[in-house]
Amino acid sequence: MRDFAYHQPATVPDAVALLGSVSESRPIAGGMTLLPTLKNRLASPSALIDLAGLPGLQSIEERSFGLAIGALARHADVARSRLVATRIPALARLAGSIGDPAVRHRGTIGGSLANNDPAADYPAAALALGARIVTNRREIPADDFFLGLFETALGPDELITGVVFPAPKRAGYAKLRNPASRYAVVGVFVAETANGIRVAMTGAGNGVVRVPEFEQALATSFAPEAVAHLRLAPDDFASDMHAEAAYRAHLASVMAARAVADALA
C-alpha cells in the first residue's frame, strides 16, 4: 500500500472542504472495501479523509414514517438495533447477514451505499424500500441514486450523511451467499410499501435493479408461489467465475420466493 496523508476532520463541512481541496483524496469510513482496494493497489489516493470523527452520524432514530439512520451506523449497530428490529425487521436481518461479525463491526451503511458494489446488500434494501439518501447538500431518492457498477449520483465532494427509510407494511430479504466473499451471488429484497410492491435485486450484474416482473406478480398475489416459477431472461444477468447467467436468472426466482416467505414469516 502506498503511503498517504491522513486527515481527521471534526465536522461535515470540514470533510467536504478537504475532499474538494486535497487532490486525489478519498473519504474512508469503515474501510472494508477501500482498504482491500488500496492493498491491491487498485487505487492509490494521495490522502484519506477519515469520516469516523464526524459527530452525530452514527444515530438510528425513529420517524413518523420510519427510520433515519446515520451514514456511520455500522452493520452491527443496525443488526442489533431494537428500533430497526421493530420498524423494519428485514433491514436488521439484512445488516446481520453482511460479511462476518468482524466486518460488521467496521463497515457502515453510508459506505456500502456510496460504494454501490453490484453484489452488496444495502443497495437492494434502499431501492426496494424507496429510501432517500441524505447528503451534505440534498436528498436523493434511491430510484435516482444507483447508476450502475460502482456508480452513484454522488458528486465528487458530496458526502452521504444519512439514509431515511419509510417503514414498509412488510418486507423480506433472501440471498445466496458466496461462501468465500459472503457477497450475494443473487439477493432479492421485496417490500410492500405505501406505493405498492417494490422488488430490488442485487448480484445480477451491473448493480442493483428493480424487477418489474416480480413486482407485478406479487401485486396480484403476495405469496412465494407467485414468483417461484417466474423465469427472468438470462440475457439481463452476468456470467462470471461464481455463476453463469442462466443460474443467476434461476436463483433470482428462488431468492424472490424466499424473500416473500421471509416477509410473511
Binding site: Y6, K39, P101, A102, V103, H105, R106
Partner: peptide, 27 residues
Amino acid sequence: CDTSQCGACVVLLDGEAVKSCTLLAPV
C-alpha cells in the same frame, strides 16, 4: 490471507472483534 477473509488477525478494538489486517493504525 491479508484480504479480510480468514480471521487469523482478529483483535479486540474497544472490546469488539475486528480484522487488524484491514484496519489503519491512525484509527
